[in-house]
Design a protein around this nucleic acid. Structure first.
Lengths: 378, 378
DNA sequence: TTGTAAGCGTTATCAC
DNA sequence: GTGATAACGCTTACAA
């Protein structure tokens, strides 16, 4: 059976919908047809191959495949069937080369293994998907040079936009941002001296901190400790400030020795608990920079025989999925993670799709966290 | 100052290393130079622009930028400096179009918010990075048609390979796999009737199940329940089989009523506990399909006032990060998640880079889990 | 050592 | 309606 003969056997309902971007081709029934087609499909079939087989020019094929009205409905169908039979898959790169849009956005994270990050990324991916975009994932491991290398790589891949979570890069970054050509939005940016000419999504750390500290105060605590996060993160500075404001609003004197250093990870929380219980006058409650810190603290407390919340009330920040499953379930400030991912993606797509060459100077969305009361403070 | 004049001001140490793929361009000191360059960088600069500025042909530029030996060392330097100054970024898509390699692999997951998946993906991403590849992430939400659409999209993006985790697609898939043109490796494939002409990485479910059940038996238990995972997953079938074999090896009669349905999620575990304690003769130990199930069960037990492991010993499967932090810390079978991600990525890259057109019929790597004893069984 | 030209798979602008 | 033809930015023979 020759190719010409096969080409005459058109399948009627080969396509199950408009081809649009051409991703629905797979549904055609040809899958189960003559194995000769398999072989044909092996060799990448291009628009030109279809043109040759259909006896038309490649531009006609292009039009037919993109549902252009500028093509005879009959030949359009014929071409679509043929494309389907031959196992055609449009080359997104070639298309991007001429259209200038890749329908791809780059996402730079510290590590995807961080449950907080993972949920944010899920929000991003799903909204990207809804808009017909795909996501390139890149990890920075919190190393600035890896982060900037990732951005450069994304530039080479001609992404339509970039989202960076928990960026460590500040002023140095901005120069690169201007060169990248695609919009860059930062989510929970951790750098102190940024905040000019950028697009950001971030949680209101100060507000969340007020919620957490006030909750502890309302529970009757007045000796309240704060375990810090990693140094030089603006989020930590802001959370500390909120903690101090809550204290002062209730006329509770601020005791700097009750601020003990952590690192945003369980081990930091474990060490912090040690430091706290060694004090002559330990606190009755503690507000931790984040849930991971609180969870480490919880674990150390269990090992040290300290009852939570009896001896010590504990509240965290983030509301990672783990928080409600630890023992006791952890009170915390819930960040709308998926929502933030969604917002970041929508912002970057809006920027990418605006044909207005001059973008707004900056755009910063601040979302508010929510107090989640669980057993660790009751 | 004209472009020509600027072009004469070559920066000496503009590049800090071999250009290779051209991702190190950003490090050049020009960042802080004349703002005229900024403007130039705004308009995408191509190899031809550099050629024009340098007064050579664009092929010479191409060679210079790729460290080809076929170019005068002096002009090479001149061109590299120029490229750097002008803020050149190579177009990976254009390059891919001609070389046929995109240095990109697609990763399809159920959801990245699953901590198990996230860790596997981290293993993938980091080894991809080490090999100079990038990762496109796509979520299937466990919906077969979304999964297959994702694969089709990846085909359009001309990825060099695809990794699918926890695939639900079976025979139907294989046809598509043959058409994709790029190697596809499945990791912890969940489909019953697959297992021919594919490349897979999976954990030895049967073996892990033996470990878990034997551990419970060694602890003196003989009434041991099993909470199943989602229906029709081969992993569940295999774990159940391992459980049964362990029982029979110790001459413990198999009681089908001790196998209660779960769904692989906490809620399934919570419901399962309810079912167990309502029995006249409840089990003294329970082996859960996975950690999420066990964690739900733990929580329900706490609420029902059942002591773990006093009243009921519990063991899970997976060893997600959460497992060691719940209360009591959960005994489980640890899957080498990052390792599996690494193996999958290396397999797909090996397949992609082998210029041998005929690939091995199939290649299946089975890794063994490890018993992780914690307080929930002691 | 360098330049010319062809081509990768598209879309887009013209004519016809 | 359709078909040449020219891009898009790059690599790579083949010539010079």
């Amino acid at each position: 059976m020759t190719l010409a003969q096969l080409n005459n056997k058109f399948l009627p309902d080969c396509l199950d919908g408009g081809m649009g971007v051409g991703y629905t081709l797979h549904t055609c029934a040809i899958n189960h047809l003559c194995s000769v087609y398999r072989v044909l499909a092996m060799e990448k079939v291009s628009i030109k191959d279809i043109a040759k087989a259909a006896g038309v020019s490649h531009s006609t094929v292009s039009r037919a495949l993109r549902e252009s009205p500028l093509v005879n409905v009959h030949t359009k169908e014929r071409i679509q069937d043929l494309a389907c039979e031959m196992g055609y898959s449009p080359d997104a790169q070639a298309r991007s080369l001429v259209t200038g849009r890749s329908y791809t956005v780059g996402v730079v994270v510290t590590t995807i293994a961080d449950p907080f990050v993972a949920e944010v990324v899920q929000g991003m991916e799903s909204t990207a998907h809804d808009h017909g975009y795909t996501v390139i994932l890149s990890s920075s491991n919190s190393e600035p040079e890896r982060e900037i290398a990732a951005v450069e790589m994304l530039r080479a891949k001609r992404v339509d936009g970039v989202i960076v979570t928990s960026s460590r890069i500040g002023a140095l970054y901005l120069d690169n941002v201007e060169r990248i050509g695609a919009p860059v939005v930062l989510i929970n940016n951790h750098n102190e001296q940024s905040g000019h000419y950028t697009y950001t999504i971030s949680v209101d750390n100060h507000h969340g901190s007020l919620l957490a500290t006030n909750h502890l105060i309302n529970q009757g605590h007045s000796r309240i400790a704060y375990i810090t996060g990693p140094a030089n993160h603006s989020s930590d500075t802001e959370r500390l400030a909120g903690y101090r404001q809550a204290l002062s609003e209730d006329s509770i004197p601020y005791d700097p020795t009750l601020v003990v250093p952590g690192d945003g990870k369980p081990v930091g929380g474990m060490r912090a608990l040690q430091a706290l219980i060694e004090r002559t006058q330990p606190p009755s409650a503690v507000f931790c920079y984040n849930d991971m810190t609180a969870i480490g603290l919880l674990r150390a407390a269990r090992e040290a025989g300290i009852s939570i919340p009896g001896d010590l009330a504990v509240i965290g920040f983030d509301d990672i999925p783990l928080a409600s499953f630890v023992c006791p379930p952890l009170s915390t400030i819930s960040q709308p993670k998926k929502e933030m991912g969604r917002l970041a993606m929508e912002m970057v797509l809006t920027l990418a799709e605006s044909d207005d060459p001059v973008r707004p100077e900056s755009s910063d969305i601040v979302v508010k966290g929510k107090l989640e009361v669980r057993q660790s403070t009751l």
